[in-house]
């Protein structure tokens, strides 16, 4: 049966959008309000309440934190929303002959677009308060975001499929994402850690994209092009693995929903 996947993906994305904001008083206003509120909290807590923590060279700690936290949220939200995409759409999958992975793609893409827009907004505020970066830094940050999104997509495709067979996985992914938050340089600069720990954390493929974004947009620190390339390679391999998994186990996905 031939299907028009383009319009369907657009419609699924529109549903993602509505699911987030339907029924709320502010509606899509949350798109702007939420990241700005989060930024204001960071500035208050780490700029005023606990100023002792704000010692990261020339970069104010709230800015340092924002440049790590929002990219991390982009990755973590996309992954966590994608994990349950098949189970949440089981009714549709049983009745509508769409490529099942479309549901995961819509979830991840919808999440990345919303959090990406939030990141841009936060960046605009930080620029207004003095943040400066050049084109090379912006390109590194863009590549970092792309690698994070690709990583989230690949992991979400794998996790969503395995979740159909192992229903406990969504909770496990939630916990692992929480652990990942501390294993990635969101709250801290890796250079401040003992050398052996910093080197070990460098094997985490999420480190390079976050550092590329932070270093690129703050014009501080070295741009980790090599590590970013390696992270992109890992994301690519994970995507290939997810396609292989889909071909094997996803062929009869509907039988297990």
């Amino acid at each position: 049966m031939r299907l028009a996947s383009g319009p369907v993906l657009r419609e699924l994305l529109a549903r993602e959008w509505r699911e987030r904001y339907q029924g709320s008083v502010l509606g899509a206003g949350w798109l702007a309000l939420l990241p700005l509120a989060q930024l204001a909290v960071l500035a208050f807590v780490f700029g005023t309440l606990l100023p002792a923590r704000a010692s990261t060279g020339a970069l104010p700690y709230p800015t340092f934190l924002a440049l790590g936290l929002f990219p991390w949220l982009l990755f973590a939200n996309a992954l966590n929303r994608g994990v349950t995409a098949y189970l949440d759409n089981a009714g549709l999958i049983a009745r509508v002959p769409l490529p099942a992975s479309l549901y995961v793609h819509a979830r991840v893409l919808g999440s990345v677009v919303v959090d990406g827009a939030g990141l841009v907004l936060v960046l605009a505020v930080l620029v207004a308060f003095g943040l400066r970066f050049d084109m090379t830094g912006a390109l590194a940050a863009l590549c970092g975001v792309a690698v994070l999104a690709l990583m989230a997509l690949a992991l979400a495709r794998i996790a969503a499929l395995v979740q159909v067979f192992v229903r406990d996985l969504a909770a496990v992914v939630g916990q692992l994402t929480g652990l990942g938050f501390f294993l990635a340089p969101v709250l801290y600069e890796r250079a401040q850690l003992p050398a052996s720990t910093a080197e070990a954390l460098g094997w985490n493929p999420l480190v390079a994209p976050i550092e590329a974004i932070r270093h690129g947009l703050s014009a501080q620190g070295e741009l980790p092009w090599g590590a970013l390339g390696a992270a992109a390679l890992v994301a690519g391999l994970l995507l290939i693995a997810s396609i292989g998994l889909q071909r094997r186990a996803g062929r009869h996905l509907e039988d297990f929903l």
Binding site: L3, A4, P7, V8, R10, E11, L12, A14, R15, R18, G91, L92, A94, R95, V96, L98
Partner: peptide, 23 residues
Amino acid sequence: AGFHPEYSGRDNVRMAAAIHGLA
């Protein structure tokens, strides 16, 4: 035809029509 219970008839029609390439 796979309607989503949480969405309105209009929203579901948009989805069903999109599946048939009508958008």
